[in-house]
Simulated assay, not measured.
Amino acid sequence: MNKENIEHNRTAGNEADILRQAMEALKALAPLEYEAEPVRGLRDQRYDYIVRARVFGKEFAWCVEVKNRLTKAAELQALINKDKTRHPFLLATGYVPPEAAARLHDGGIQFIDTVGNAFVNQPPLLIFVKGNRPEKEEPPVPAARLFKGVGLKIAYLLLCRPELVDRPYRDLAEMTDVALGTVNGTLTELVQKGFILDMGKKGKKLLGRKTLFERWIAAYPDYLKPKLLLGRFRGDGDWWKDIQMDPALAQWGGEVAAAKLTGYLKPGTVTLYADKNRLADLVIANRLKKDPQGNVEILERFWPPGNGFGEGETVHPILIYADLAAIGEQRTMETARMIYEQHLDRYFGQD
């Protein structure tokens, strides 16, 4: 499929235009010719196009994932996907800021964007360009209502326990402490967007869990997590290391939870999810001091304690992954990749 076909591939929509512009920007850096073929309908698909290129008499191919906008969640997904494609992985997007370009380069993730930034390590090509900026900053794309507020609580419940999709709305409202109308609106939107299949008397089924997960991860840091903050504190040294947290009181999230699951990360921040009415007990028991700049964040737990939402003293791997993605540092990205591969890849592979 040549580049003219890319432009007229209606099913690809804006993705096709981004890929065309990014490849043309790459052509300005190197004398290559290319053909692109869309990839559709593959189970566990990790890319959108196969691009075959020729340069200096050498032929090679990329598996290309196209993102309209680059988020930390998208960076992390690229880190997970880069070693799992049949040809070298290439990320194509609208714009890669300098700090993101550095992270992608350090993570070994090849990328191109529409304004001429690129990291290509495909012999005989070795290109690394960062710092080019768009002529005009694009306004942020408004998030769908589903991904803008407390509806994210409902989506999280379903991601952790898909069988809850068949529970009465009132039960879901009680489990998340949100209004019944919010539950109704969220479930209706999930149906409209194809994430829930309503089979009538046969009940409902959650579909596209991996896509829903990726959308949820991208929205959580901006639209839900800030609303959950109960306070910031500071503790003495590595106070968390020797504590066996009572799950009825709180559960570890973020870096501490990741360190406990993988034994890999040295936490820089401490994240706890607790019931609001037990905040004082938690602070006193662990001798925490109120500090707006402290490295201990305590957030309100927005799910009912019990099976399916995290085992023991740590929250569910989905939420650990989201916390790490929100930090977006190289060390947390690598640990998040480990969490995904050890705890989530098989889970979403069941779709």
Rank of each mutant, 00 (worst) to 15 (best):
D17L: 13
N307R: 15
A155N: 04
E313Y: 08
N68D: 13
A12S: 15
A22E: 05
I50T: 15
K130I: 02
G306K: 05
E311C: 01
D113V: 04
F213D: 06
K201A: 15
A36V: 06
L91R: 09
L265F: 02
E24D: 10
D238Y: 11
M333I: 12
L159V: 10
W240G: 05
G231Q: 03
V115G: 05
P292M: 12
K260M: 12
K84I: 00
Q45T: 08
P168Q: 07
P31N: 02
R69W: 07
R161S: 10
K204L: 09
E297I: 00
L299T: 02
E138L: 13
R234V: 14
V150K: 11
R10C: 03
G328T: 05
R46G: 14
Q192N: 15
A257R: 05
D345T: 12
L76F: 06
A22H: 08
P38M: 09
L125T: 04
P31W: 01
G235L: 03
R209K: 14
F147K: 04
I80H: 10
H343D: 00
E189L: 12
Q77C: 02
L249T: 02
L164E: 05
P140M: 09
I217L: 07
G231N: 07
T176S: 15
A100S: 14
K130S: 14
G308T: 12
K130W: 01
Y95S: 07
R234S: 15
G306T: 04
I50Q: 14
